[in-house]
């Protein structure tokens, strides 16, 4: 514990905000493109699962469409904060650190919230699993960007 604390403090002091904002936006853009690609992959490879988006539990396209396109930037912001706070304890190469970010996000945030979603809303397990995979891959992509730009 005593060896971890100085790393966190040191990484917080060395923040370059220009680089941080660039990394945040770049990660958001990459996650958005990845998200769109994954929706199209789902449509072509798993059409039966994609059909479920016609369920009434999903909002119709309209005035709130922008919130969907903003979500990668919200996620990128959260992951960037996590990265700047804890990158000192994530050891190894770029890929290994990105995998760690993805797994932490998956276990701490995605798994519980998707568990809750599945228990409360009428969505199939298959659909919920696609969201889990989608989130893990997004966090992995963000981890690569952060490890490269703000190691």
């Amino acid at each position: 514990m005593s060896s971890i604390q100085p790393n966190i403090v040191q990484s917080a002091r060395n923040v370059n905000f220009g680089k941080v904002i660039f990394a945040w936006l770049l990660a958001g853009i990459i996650m958005l493109l990845l998200g769109l690609a994954m929706v199209y992959i789902c449509i072509h490879l798993f059409p039966r699962i994609a059909d479920e988006y016609f369920s009434p539990v999903f909002r119709r396209a309209g005035e709130t469409d922008w919130t969907f396109y903003v979500h990668p930037f919200i996620l990128s912001f959260g992951l960037k904060w996590f990265w700047e706070r804890y990158k000192g304890i994530l050891k190894g190469g770029v890929l290994l650190r990105a995998i760690e970010v993805a797994l932490v996000y998956g276990l701490v945030a995605l798994l519980p919230i998707l568990w809750l979603t599945f228990s409360a809303i009428d969505v199939s397990l298959k659909m919920t699993i696609t969201w889990f995979v989608y989130g893990i891959l997004q966090a992995f992509a963000a981890g690569i960007v952060f490890a490269k730009l703000n190691p």
């Binding site: 929706v39 994609a50 988006y53 016609f54 999903f58 119709r60 396209a61 469409d65 922008w66 969907f68």
Partner: peptide, 12 residues
């Protein structure tokens, strides 16, 4: 009438 669209228009 509006043809159904979901997921911000990605599913239509």
């Amino acid at each position: 009438l509006k043809a159904p669209k979901k997921l911000a228009g990605l599913i239509k």
